[in-house]
Amino acid sequence: MTWDWQFAANSVPLILQGLLVTLQITVLGSLVAYTLGLVFALVRRARIPVVDQLLFLFIEFVRSTPLLVQIFVLYYVFPSAFGIRMSAFVTGVIAIGVHYACYTSEVYRAGIDAVPKGQWEAATALSLPRRRVWTSVILPQAVPRVLPALGNYTISMFKETPLLLAIGVVDLVNAAKAAGNESYRFVEVYTIAGLLFLLLSYPASLLVRRLERRVEPV
C-alpha cells in the first residue's frame, strides 16, 4: 500500500469538518458534564430522601453500563418510549455529557469533602447563609482542586466521540471514514485523523499535568 499525498491533501477539508464536530461535542459535552456533575454532587450532599437513592442508582447504572448502549437507548428508545426526538448531534452531546457527569459528580464530591470542616464552622460562626457559604467559601476552594480531574475527563470525552458513529454523527473519525469510502483508500485518512487526535490530546494532557502541579491534590 502506498501513500497518496494528493488524496491525503484532498481529504483534509472533509476531515477538518469532522474535527469541528468532534470539538463541538467535546466542548458542549464538557459543559453538560461539568454543570450536571456539580448539580449531582450538591443534590447528593443534601441527602434528600428518595431523591438521593434514585440519583445514586442512576449514577451507578450509568457508570456500570457502556456509553455505546446509552447512546443507542437515547437515540432509538427515547423517541418511541417518551416521544422525545433529538438530532444525532444533540443526542451525542447529551449522552456523553450525562455519562461523564456521573464521573465528574464523584470528582466534585471529593473536592468538596477536601475543604476542611473548619471552613464550614467559620462560615457558620459568621452567620453566612448556606447558599453564600457554598458560593463564597466552599466552591471557590473545591473547584480549583478538581480542575485537573475535570480536564482529564474532557480529554476522554474527546477521544470517545467516535462512538457516535453508531447514530450517524459525522465526527472526526467518521468524516475520515467517509472521505476514505469514496476511493476505498483508508491509510491516509485514518492516519490524518489519528494525528489530529494526538495533536490535540497530547498538549491537552500536558496542560492538565501542569495544572495538577499547581493545585493542591484532593
Binding site: G118, Q119, A122, T124, S136
Partner: peptide, 21 residues
C-alpha cells in the same frame, strides 16, 4: 438559629480564615 447566631462570634484554634479571599 440563624437569627440568634449573629449575636455570637467565635475565634478558633486553627484560625479558619478563608484562603480564597
Amino acid at each position: 438559629l440563624a437569627g440568634v447566631r449573629t449575636r455570637i462570634g467565635m475565634v478558633f484554634q486553627q484560625f479558619n480564615l478563608f484562603p480564597n479571599m
